[in-house]
Design a binder for these strands. Structure first.
Length: 105
DNA sequence: AGTATTTGACCCCC
DNA sequence: GGGGGTCAAATACT
Protein backbone atom coordinates (compact mmCIF):
# COMPACT_ATOMS: atom_id res chain seq x y z
CA UNK A 1 0.00 0.00 0.00
CA UNK A 2 0.90 3.61 0.00
CA UNK A 3 2.00 4.32 -3.53
CA UNK A 4 4.67 7.04 -3.85
CA UNK A 5 2.33 8.86 -6.24
CA UNK A 6 -0.79 9.47 -4.19
CA UNK A 7 -1.88 13.02 -3.37
CA UNK A 8 -2.55 11.77 0.16
CA UNK A 9 1.21 11.69 0.66
CA UNK A 10 1.39 15.38 -0.17
CA UNK A 11 -1.26 16.26 2.39
CA UNK A 12 0.37 13.97 4.91
CA UNK A 13 3.62 15.83 4.28
CA UNK A 14 1.98 19.02 5.46
CA UNK A 15 0.38 17.34 8.44
CA UNK A 16 3.76 15.96 9.46
CA UNK A 17 5.07 19.50 9.34
CA UNK A 18 2.48 20.48 11.92
CA UNK A 19 3.12 17.42 14.05
CA UNK A 20 6.88 17.73 13.85
CA UNK A 21 7.18 21.51 14.15
CA UNK A 22 9.76 21.14 16.91
CA UNK A 23 8.79 18.09 18.96
CA UNK A 24 7.65 14.56 18.40
CA UNK A 25 3.91 14.20 18.84
CA UNK A 26 1.80 11.06 18.90
CA UNK A 27 -1.94 11.17 18.34
CA UNK A 28 -3.66 9.91 21.49
CA UNK A 29 -7.24 10.83 20.69
CA UNK A 30 -9.71 12.57 18.41
CA UNK A 31 -13.01 14.17 19.32
CA UNK A 32 -15.74 15.92 17.40
CA UNK A 33 -16.14 19.34 18.99
CA UNK A 34 -19.64 20.80 19.19
CA UNK A 35 -19.67 24.12 17.41
CA UNK A 36 -16.71 23.20 15.23
CA UNK A 37 -17.08 21.97 11.69
CA UNK A 38 -14.21 19.51 11.92
CA UNK A 39 -12.93 17.13 14.63
CA UNK A 40 -10.00 18.05 16.83
CA UNK A 41 -6.88 15.91 17.10
CA UNK A 42 -5.08 15.48 20.41
CA UNK A 43 -1.34 14.93 20.44
CA UNK A 44 1.11 14.28 23.26
CA UNK A 45 4.87 14.21 23.55
CA UNK A 46 6.32 10.87 22.44
CA UNK A 47 8.74 11.03 25.37
CA UNK A 48 6.12 11.87 27.97
CA UNK A 49 7.03 8.72 29.92
CA UNK A 50 10.75 9.05 29.24
CA UNK A 51 11.53 12.71 29.78
CA UNK A 52 8.43 13.55 31.78
CA UNK A 53 7.29 16.04 29.17
CA UNK A 54 3.70 16.78 30.11
CA UNK A 55 3.21 19.02 27.09
CA UNK A 56 0.15 18.37 24.95
CA UNK A 57 -0.85 19.77 21.58
CA UNK A 58 -4.27 20.33 20.06
CA UNK A 59 -4.77 20.56 16.32
CA UNK A 60 -8.09 21.80 15.00
CA UNK A 61 -9.21 22.99 11.59
CA UNK A 62 -10.69 26.49 11.47
CA UNK A 63 -14.34 26.84 10.56
CA UNK A 64 -13.83 29.37 7.80
CA UNK A 65 -10.64 27.89 6.39
CA UNK A 66 -10.65 24.06 6.19
CA UNK A 67 -7.05 24.38 5.01
CA UNK A 68 -6.04 26.30 8.10
CA UNK A 69 -4.88 24.30 11.10
CA UNK A 70 -5.09 25.91 14.51
CA UNK A 71 -2.30 24.43 16.61
CA UNK A 72 -2.53 25.02 20.35
CA UNK A 73 0.22 24.03 22.78
CA UNK A 74 -0.73 23.19 26.37
CA UNK A 75 1.62 22.55 29.29
CA UNK A 76 5.39 22.92 29.47
CA UNK A 77 8.05 21.07 27.52
CA UNK A 78 10.58 19.41 29.82
CA UNK A 79 12.21 17.49 27.01
CA UNK A 80 13.65 20.64 25.43
CA UNK A 81 17.02 18.93 25.09
CA UNK A 82 16.12 15.32 24.62
CA UNK A 83 13.30 15.18 22.11
CA UNK A 84 13.38 16.83 18.68
CA UNK A 85 16.38 19.15 18.64
CA UNK A 86 15.92 20.50 15.14
CA UNK A 87 13.51 23.41 14.86
CA UNK A 88 12.39 23.60 18.47
CA UNK A 89 14.48 26.74 18.92
CA UNK A 90 11.82 28.68 17.07
CA UNK A 91 8.92 27.29 19.07
CA UNK A 92 10.33 26.51 22.49
CA UNK A 93 8.44 29.39 24.03
CA UNK A 94 5.45 27.14 24.74
CA UNK A 95 4.96 28.05 28.39
CA UNK A 96 1.28 27.77 29.12
CA UNK A 97 -1.24 28.13 26.29
CA UNK A 98 -0.27 29.12 22.79
CA UNK A 99 -2.36 29.61 19.68
CA UNK A 100 -0.74 29.38 16.31
CA UNK A 101 -2.11 29.18 12.80
CA UNK A 102 -0.29 27.30 10.08
CA UNK A 103 -0.83 25.59 6.75
CA UNK A 104 -2.27 27.94 4.18
CA UNK A 105 -3.93 26.70 1.03
C1' DA B 1 8.61 -7.48 16.36
C1' DG B 2 8.04 -2.90 17.56
C1' DT B 3 6.06 1.45 17.24
C1' DA B 4 2.66 4.59 15.94
C1' DT B 5 -1.84 5.15 14.97
C1' DT B 6 -7.00 4.49 15.32
C1' DT B 7 -11.59 4.07 17.72
C1' DG B 8 -14.36 3.68 21.89
C1' DA B 9 -15.37 4.29 26.52
C1' DC B 10 -14.61 6.55 30.86
C1' DC B 11 -13.53 10.36 33.69
C1' DC B 12 -13.43 15.17 35.01
C1' DC B 13 -15.11 19.87 35.12
C1' DC B 14 -18.61 23.43 34.59
C1' DG C 1 -26.18 16.68 31.91
C1' DG C 2 -23.06 18.29 28.37
C1' DG C 3 -18.66 19.07 26.64
C1' DG C 4 -13.95 18.28 26.64
C1' DG C 5 -10.01 15.57 27.60
C1' DT C 6 -7.36 11.39 28.56
C1' DC C 7 -6.32 6.46 28.68
C1' DA C 8 -6.60 1.70 27.01
C1' DA C 9 -6.78 -1.86 23.64
C1' DA C 10 -6.62 -3.21 18.91
C1' DT C 11 -4.94 -2.54 14.28
C1' DA C 12 -1.80 -1.22 10.63
C1' DC C 13 2.59 -0.07 8.73
C1' DT C 14 7.67 -0.08 8.74
Amino acid sequence: MMQPNQPTVVQRRVVVNLLDDGFKWSKYGQKDIVGAKHPRGFYRCTHRNSTGCRATKQVQRTDGNPSLFNVVYLGEHTCGDNAASSEQSQDKHSSGTLAKTTLQG
